[in-house]
């Protein structure tokens, strides 16, 4: 069967879920993406992506405890599933494989 496709933004969100291990919920993920990539993303986009990742089986979620700053509402925490982890590793390896084969001259300009 063809593997489930992982989009660029989905990849970023999935990585961030891993980054905020055990503390990954909507607002925290949004902040982390802002910090790491400088992209400002609306919370609804984060939610939409998280739920898409869940549908694809790359993340799991569970409800945490109630907190005061959320008006007594609970957080939904996300964790990366084994499938998600495999997908991320695979992407990374593929990229590195390609990078290693690129002649240095082809990509001599870098971000300063």
């Amino acid at each position: 069967m063809r593997k489930t496709y992982l989009g660029e933004f989905e990849e970023v969100v999935l990585l961030t879920v891993a980054l905020r291990f055990e503390q990954a919920y909507g607002v925290a993920i949004q902040e982390a993406i802002q910090e790491q990539t400088g992209r400002s993303i609306s919370i609804s986009a984060v939610h939409a992506t998280l739920h898409r990742l869940q549908d694809k089986g790359f993340v799991n979620s569970f409800m945490g405890g109630a907190t005061a700053e959320r008006g007594g509402r609970r957080k939904r925490f996300f964790t990366v599933t084994p499938a998600g982890s495999r997908a991320l590793h695979e992407i990374k390896e593929q990229r590195e494989q390609i990078w290693q084969q690129i002649p240095a001259k082809a990509l001599q300009w870098k971000v300063l």
Binding site: Y25, G26, V27, I43, H47, H51, M63, T67, E69, R70, G71, R73, R74, K75, R76
Partner: peptide, 15 residues
């Protein structure tokens, strides 16, 4: 089933 986390996150951001 989504309402709680959506409202929760919005409330937190609102703060």
């Amino acid at each position: 089933h989504l309402l709680e986390e959506v409202q929760g996150d919005l409330q937190e951001l609102y703060g």
